[in-house]
């Protein structure tokens, strides 16, 4: 989860970012940071393909994501299952079946929720030191920008082989590929990214 969400947000907020002409990593990351500073809200859809040895064939799931600075997020799957979670100001709930079953949580007490909040904040502040403490970042392609991230710590490496993030010709992130250590692969494709359009409070209640 930590990997997936982190890079989901990395990509989405990096959407408006354009690869610099020089194309070097520092410039690309500096530009990403500049872009995120102006983002207040985000809405998008995603399509996830999970191709892992446990499944007989790749499983496809779809859903949507909404975010509002500083710490409100709603992540939901619409297919094949109906479930998701909402987080707002350190508190939130998980839900299933059109929110008929809700389970509240507090980020400080729930490691998973805390993880999400932490990753969001890490991204919003574009804490490059924090990212680089966990990953070695490589610039695979200058135009469009494609980054590959290799986990540094043994704990993370035991789960994740590598991450690949691709941006479209306009500089908007479109695809994240998680290559798992055990041989699986998860691909996330984002679409209909809308930035800085007001997201009503009800979305996070």
């Amino acid at each position: 989860m930590r990997l997936l969400l982190f890079f989901v947000f990395l990509l989405l907020f990096a959407g408006p970012c354009r690869a610099g002409e020089a194309g070097d990593l520092d410039k690309a990351l500096a530009r990403l940071k500049n872009m995120t500073e102006n983002i207040r809200t985000l809405s998008c859809s995603f399509r996830q393909s999970t191709d892992i040895p446990l499944f007989s064939e790749p499983a496809v799931s779809e859903g949507s994501l909404r975010f509002r600075k500083p710490d409100a997020v709603a992540w939901e799957y619409s297919s094949p299952m109906r479930e998701g979670f909402v987080l707002n100001g350190g508190r939130g709930f998980r839900w299933e079946d059109d929110k008929s079953r809700r389970k509240p949580f507090v980020t400080g007490e729930d490691p998973m929720a805390g993880l999400i909040a932490g990753q969001l904040l890490a991204w919003m502040d574009f804490d490059r030191a924090r990212i680089e403490s966990r990953y070695d970042i490589f610039l695979e392609n200058e135009s469009p920008i494609t980054l590959t991230l290799l986990p540094r710590g043994p704990d993370l490496r035991s789960v994740l082989g590598s991450l690949q993030i691709s941006f479209d010709g306009q500089g908007a992130a479109r695809r994240v590929i998680l290559n798992e250590s055990g041989g699986g692969r998860t691909t996330l494709d984002f679409s209909a990214v809308i930035l800085n359009r007001p997201v009503p409070d009800a979305e996070f209640d």
């Binding site: 969400l5 892992i52 799931s61 998680l178």
Partner: peptide
Amino acid sequence: DKKLLLGPSGPALRELIA
């Protein structure tokens, strides 16, 4: 299990669920 595997925490749960 399938929900968990498809969800954000899936990568960390493969080995355990097997």
